[in-house]
Amino acid sequence: MIKLNVTNETSRLRAVVLGTAVSNGPTPTEEQAYDPKSLEHIKAGTYPVEADMVKEMEAVAKVFEKYNIKVYRPELIKDCNQIFTRDIAFVIDDVFVKANILPNREEELDAIQYVIDQIDPKKVVRPPEEVHIEGGDVMLWNNHIFIGTYKGSDYKNYITARTNMEGVQYIKDLFPHKIVKEFDLVKSKIEPRDNALHLDCCFQPVGKNKGIIYKSGFREESDYMYLVDLFGKENLFHITREEMYHMNSNVFSIAEDVVVSEKNFTRLNAWLRSNGFTVEEVPYAEIAKQEGLLRCSTLPLIRD
């Protein structure tokens, strides 16, 4: 049995589902793109190739191995993008929540069924159909749950809006003892530099009291200020529009003092090191072209 336990983003990681780039399928057509960044690379002919992405994910697997983390990988589905396990499910405390994802991604959940089978079935939940919520929008911070959403009346027109207010309410009902705070995110179908696909595209805590933040990712200044007040301005590393585009806030913590980061994030990695973090640098620039990075491709099951 897997005894789930995840209460924040940074405690020592013990078990995780890491996606896979094997049998990723052909480059999507423009119509098949889920997000503006993938679309940009499809049009430019720079969409990542499978061999490069497999190499990048293996580098992450090696880091996990080095830290003795139990790693589960999805079963292979031919010609299917199975990199972003964070989208399909997430763990809060000891509860495994299956996400209501875009319908054509349902089989990605089947591919980790062997993991779900090792969890107490009473601890596995699936929200009702009208509830949209993806793991990239759900961030745990001890007694807080931060959730990215989009409150615009044109929600249904945005394939980049992945979590609705019903999703926020669902988590509030499921965890009444937690402080659930939603954040209204900026969305764009056409300009990836102005699209916060998920909350982890513009904010993520690191360590005990620090965080990485992109101010313009929030539609309301008050949402940004909420995090500034909670963490303290001096504890937040502010990223630029271009750094947000390259996904600097989408790193992944495997302990309070160890962060897995992309090797090209020079400014961020220097800041992390100057604050006492060990930075495990990996190449992930190809996978980043699909508007997802390290946090998106991991689904933590157990943290100490």
Results as ranks from 00 to 15, higher is better:
G136P: 03
G136K: 01
D137W: 02
V138W: 06
V138E: 11
L140P: 04
L140W: 14
N142F: 10
N142C: 01
I145E: 00
F146H: 13
I147A: 01
I147E: 02
I147K: 02
G148P: 01
T149H: 05
T149R: 02
T149F: 09
T149I: 09
T149Q: 07
Y150G: 06
K151R: 15
G152N: 08
G152T: 14
S153H: 11
K156S: 11
K156N: 14
K156W: 02
I159E: 11
T160V: 14
T160C: 13
A161I: 07
A161P: 14
A161G: 06
A161C: 08
A161T: 04
R162C: 10
R162F: 04
R162Y: 06
N164R: 08
N164M: 03
N164D: 07
M165R: 04
M165H: 08
G167W: 10
G167E: 08
V168Y: 00
Q169L: 05
Q169N: 15
Y170P: 06
Y170K: 05
Y170F: 06
K172I: 00
K172N: 00
L174G: 15
L174E: 06
L174A: 03
F175Q: 02
F175V: 00
F175D: 04
P176L: 15
H177E: 12
K178N: 08
I179T: 12
V180K: 03
V180E: 05
V180S: 04
K181A: 07
E182Y: 06
E182L: 01
F183P: 12
F183C: 04
F183H: 09
D184A: 06
D184V: 15
L185P: 15
V186M: 07
V186W: 14
K187P: 15
S188Y: 13
S188D: 09
S188W: 05
